[in-house]
Simulated scan of single mutants.
Amino acid sequence: MRMNRKTGLAALLIFFGIMILCSKIGGFHHIGHSLIGFLFPLAMVGLGYLGIKNGRSTIGWILVVIGGLILFGKLSGLIAIAVAVGLIVYGFSLFRNRSVH
Rank of each mutant, 00 (worst) to 15 (best):
L12W: 05
L69D: 08
L69M: 11
L87F: 10
V83K: 03
G46L: 11
F92A: 05
L78T: 09
F72R: 07
I81W: 02
G60C: 03
I70H: 10
K6V: 02
I66P: 14
G68N: 01
L39Y: 08
I88R: 07
N97D: 11
V89I: 09
F72L: 13
I62G: 07
L39G: 15
N4W: 03
F28N: 14
S76I: 06
V100D: 15
L13F: 11
I70G: 15
I14R: 13
L13Y: 04
V65M: 11
V83E: 02
A84P: 15
L94S: 07
G55D: 09
N4P: 13
L63D: 13
G27N: 05
K6E: 12
R5Q: 14
L71Q: 12
R96G: 09
W61A: 03
M19L: 05
L12M: 10
S34M: 08
N54C: 03
G77T: 07
K24L: 00
R98P: 03
G55H: 10
G46S: 12
F72N: 12
L78M: 01
I62T: 15
I70W: 12
F15K: 00
G60Y: 09
A80I: 03
N54Y: 02
W61R: 00
L87V: 11
I59M: 14
L69G: 05
G77N: 10
I14W: 04
H33R: 09
T58N: 14
S93E: 01
V89A: 13
A11D: 13
G91N: 05
L75I: 01
A84S: 10
A80M: 08
L75W: 00
I81C: 11
F40M: 15
G8Q: 01
Y90D: 08
S76Q: 06
K53T: 03
L39H: 11
I59Y: 05
K24V: 03
S76M: 01
F92K: 13
L35K: 08
I62Q: 09
T7V: 01
G26F: 04
H33C: 01
